[in-house]
Nucleic acid binder design. Structure first.
Lengths: 125, 125
DNA sequence: TGTTTTATTGCAACATTATTGCAAAACAAT
DNA sequence: ATTGTTTTGCAATAATGTTGCAATAAAACA
């Protein structure tokens, strides 16, 4: 595990962002310091280390957010804007379905991933 | 809006499924009745009609589920299995975070889409 | 029922996002 | 400095989804 310039820069922009970043956003933020492929590979390594997490946005492309490797959080709340496509992190307190909302909700999607009863039974993973 | 064989069959398999379907699943279920492109185009039309809805799964590929065009539901609960990749529809009662779960939760992701305050203000959509 | 109109389909090509093989380069340790 | 290993870049490939255009088929109507 080497602390290369690409790794440092990519982790920095993800850590310092207030929202989870898409590949194009990361590329724009780090500048021309490495190739396209390297970005993807660094992201893959950072995810395996547990330094970042990866989720699919509403448009089907992946977003990357920072997390502490020690922090085994397994739940995240994000707001995706249908207009500007930004994805913002929210804390639990900011979600009040029936309260007065600053956000206008078009669609909400709660995706819980893990093992379904059958797969849990057969311990495939 | 024409009721073609492809449209009938595709809508039927989505309507009769207990989980939201990926493109490969739809293709397998309808058989060799039409081309790859037609499936995508029928899905696009059905979504515009409001007969089905489309969401990105955890792997970034889209899933399609049936809904009534009159039914303006804006919230869905799905369970994605990390092992078999199936996505199952859940009703509200089946989600009890701290209760005894049949499902083993690895990761949950609540994505709320719509308009963020800035975009709502400028009425971009 | 035959004709017309228009939506739909198929083909081929293209677009986007992401991944892989492999040799070269960079890093870390001795 | 030399060695061993990780990381990078290039080029190619994969997977998923989209588009242009001519041919076809559904619906409407005479």
């Amino acid at each position: 595990m080497r602390n290369t310039p690409a790794r440092r820069k990519i982790l920095a922009v993800i850590t310092n962002s207030d929202h989870i970043l898409s590949y194009p956003e990361i590329k724009a933020l780090i500048g021309e310091i490495c190739s396209r492929v390297t970005i993807y590979r660094v992201l893959e390594r950072l995810e395996q280390e547990g330094a970042i997490y990866k989720v699919a946005g509403v448009d089907g492309t992946f977003r990357f957010g920072s997390q502490s490797p020690k922090d085994n959080r397994n739940s995240y709340i994000h707001f995706s804007c249908n207009a500007c496509r930004s994805v913002t992190k929210l804390n639990e307190d900011s979600v009040t379905i029936n309260g007065p909302l600053m956000h206008q909700i078009h669609f909400s999607y709660l995706s819980i991933t893990g093992l379904c009863p059958e797969c849990r039974e057969s311990q495939k993973i």
